[in-house]
């Protein structure tokens, strides 16, 4: 990935670009899903862009992240290619997972992106493991786990943070508190008012930042990364944010009103950061419009290319289970395909 140095003006423009790219990508994905173009489920990151981009900007290129079911933003923030992502959403052969994973399982281990994840709370143990590798090998790498407010209630998240804290692993745990665990407000799921307070139980630093302010997220993760890399162990950061879309596309959202959403849209992360950059003279309104148009075009191209890309050959369904050759799979698959599968 290209590392963003948000302390520089170039870095700030790149951070803005990535936030815009996430919004354009996910807005498009939502439209495509509504039009019946995309199979499966899509969970959109619109509204939460500052968290992903702010956090990833504070990482080094070789650092790891683990993601969630709402992972498109993390992928783009970590520098993954929207084209290959869009292809994956379409289930095409040139997608990140050759069409096997889809929206909820995009991964690029070489880029340090250990996978979006369909299981709420499954990412943090993986980050703990990645951090363990870094510690054992003496590598200057840090593993950052993104997870939602809902995941804070998952037992394995507690286990993962406790292990990382006990072993002083180079990990950073970022709770994206978007105020709802699926369709239930956060206060109905947790007895603490600030999810970062749970850090006290692990004897590690924990604090809450404004997840609508990319500079706050960046700075917090930067400090946490330094601490982790310095051998002092993990930090728990809660970023308060909001998802503008439903839990999944098609969610009727009976649990909130338009007004609830507008309160957060008034503090929109992209709009406010852009305004600050305009005020500071880092970007002009015209340059911003130009950047936005470029990104929209890039996403349109990604969609066009994904649409025209070939699907994987049906026989690919039987590949990639193991590194080793397992006779069962070839035997059973040929039996099943002999029953007409091939011509389907």
């Amino acid at each position: 990935m290209v590392v963003i140095d948000i302390e520089t003006e170039d870095g700030q423009r790149e951070a803005l670009r990535r936030m815009l790219t996430i919004r354009a990508f996910d807005t498009k994905a939502g439209d495509l899903f509504a039009d019946g173009e995309l199979p499966g489920f899509v969970h959109l990151y619109v509204g939460e862009e500052a968290v992903g981009v702010g956090a990833c900007s504070a990482l080094e290129a070789d650092d790891y992240i683990t993601s969630t079911h709402r992972g498109h933003g993390h992928c783009i923030a970590k520098g993954l290619d929207p084209k290959k992502m869009m292809s994956e959403l379409y289930g095409k052969a040139d997608g990140y997972c050759n069409g096997k994973g889809g929206s909820m399982h995009i991964a690029d281990v070489d880029a340090g992106m250990l996978g979006a994840n369909g299981i709420v709370g499954a990412g943090p143990p993986l980050a703990t493991g990645a951090a363990l590798t870094a510690q054992l090998k003496g590598e200057d790498k840090v593993a950052l786990a993104f997870f939602g407010d809902g995941a804070v209630a998952q037992g394995q998240v507690h286990e993962a943070i406790n292990i990382a804290a006990t072993w002083d692993l180079p990990a950073v745990f970022v709770v994206e508190n978007n105020q709802y665990g699926e369709g239930t407000p956060v206060e109905k799921q947790h007895n603490v008012q600030n999810l970062s307070e749970t850090a006290e139980a692990y004897n590690i630093p924990g604090f809450t930042v404004d997840g609508m302010d990319i500079t706050a997220v960046y700075e917090a993760v930067k400090e946490a990364r330094n601490r982790a890399a310095d051998g002092q162990g993990p930090t728990l950061i809660e970023a308060e944010t909001y998802r503008y879309h439903g839990h999944f596309e098609g969610d009727q959202q009976p649990y909130r009103t338009e007004e609830d959403i507008d309160i957060w849209k008034d503090r929109d992360a992209i709009e406010s950061f852009k305004q600050r950059l305009v005020d500071a003279g880092t970007i002009t309104e015209d340059e911003f419009d130009e950047m936005k148009a470029e990104i929209d075009e890039q996403i349109e191209t990604a969609v066009e290319e994904a649409k025209s890309a070939p699907y994987p050959d049906p026989s690919e369904a039987y590949e990639d289970m193991f590194n080793a050759t397992v006779p069962e799979i070839s035997q059973f698959s040929s039996q099943m395909r002999a029953d007409g599968g091939e011509d389907r």
Partner: peptide, 21 residues
């Protein structure tokens, strides 16, 4: 003020903690 725990100095310095409980 319910907005507890916002102090990054818990990480970078010796800030004390006062949680909502």
């Amino acid at each position: 003020n319910p907005a507890a725990g916002r102090d990054i100095r818990r990480l970078t310095g010796g800030a004390s903690v006062s949680n909502n409980y």
